[in-house]
Simulated scan of single mutants.
Amino acid sequence: MIQPFRNFLRAGGISSWNRPERIRSALILVIVATIGLLIALFIGYRLLRSDPQKLISSIQQQASMSIGKVHQVSTRDGVKEWVLDAESAQVVDEARKLMLEGVSVVYFLSNGDQVTLKGKNGFLKTDSSDIEVFGDVVVTYQTYRLETARLLYDHGQRQITCPTQVVLTSETSVLTADSMSFDLNQNRSSFEGNVEVIFHEHIRM
């Protein structure tokens, strides 16, 4: 009885007997892990489908892309607030914004007037609709023309801010200042820092 048992040990009988059990356990672990992963992916996909903004953000976080001409219309309570056009755009995924080239924006005031903004480059934040334009920025309103290097638009406050020097030209004068802000809701502008006004000579007093 002892010798056959020793022969069984030499032949690796116990090891051979345990190998199928180990393989079976490993297969069970793989199957469980795969099922868990599929469930997690399914739940995540369902959550993204229920929130399109999160789905867009998720796609943007995966890769950047170039876009052709861009046409964006912003409305609030059924009222059109601004229309943006750009020659091209690049998705900046980590900041969730579009980098624009050849920017043109038309803002609509409550009195029916329009303010037109143009610039070489800019950014449109996709989550807040805030806009930044820089490079040969020109703003026109009625008979006024404003030139500056950089302009910011706060969509929530509907306010335009120029943190760099501005030159405002009209039929009767030229105004320069270090900065300017324009409230689109109240149709009111303010200038700060080294404000200087030069009137044209043909003005009649």
Rank of each mutant, 00 (worst) to 15 (best):
F42P: 00
S50I: 02
V195P: 00
D130W: 00
K125A: 04
D183V: 09
I2E: 10
E171A: 01
D127M: 07
R145K: 05
Q159G: 06
T169W: 00
T148L: 06
L109Y: 04
S15F: 10
V197S: 13
Q61F: 08
I43T: 15
F199L: 09
Q72L: 04
V103C: 04
Y45N: 15
Q61H: 08
V79C: 00
L152C: 12
H200T: 03
G193F: 12
L175V: 06
L117E: 11
L117I: 05
S128D: 11
L47R: 09
L38N: 14
E171D: 06
S74M: 08
I67Y: 09
V103L: 10
I23K: 08
E21S: 07
G112I: 09
E21R: 13
S170Y: 01
V92A: 15
D136W: 06
R158H: 03
V137C: 03
E192W: 13
G44Q: 12
R10T: 06
D85E: 12
M1A: 12
G12T: 04
Y153S: 05
S181G: 03
E147H: 13
H202E: 11
N187M: 10
L124E: 14
L146S: 04
H200L: 02
R49D: 08
D136P: 05
Q61R: 09
I39H: 03
N194I: 02
D154N: 11
I59F: 08
I160F: 05
F134E: 01
A86K: 02
Q114F: 08
V115C: 00
A11E: 03
D178W: 11
L29C: 03
D127G: 08
S128M: 07
V105P: 02
L175I: 07
Q53R: 13
T140N: 05
L47C: 05
I131T: 08
L100A: 04
N111P: 05
I35H: 05
S15I: 06
S129W: 07
S104P: 02
L37G: 07
G68Y: 05
L109T: 01
E81G: 03
A149G: 08
S189M: 09
M180W: 15
I131M: 09
Q159S: 09
I198D: 06
K120N: 11
D85M: 10
N187A: 14
I14D: 00
G68K: 05
I56C: 07
I31A: 15
V115P: 00
V106F: 01
D136V: 02
H202A: 10
N18E: 13
W82K: 03
N194V: 01
A63C: 01
I67L: 12
A63M: 07
F42W: 05
V91Q: 10
G44W: 14
I35N: 06
Q186M: 08
L27A: 14
V174N: 11
Q90R: 11
L184F: 12
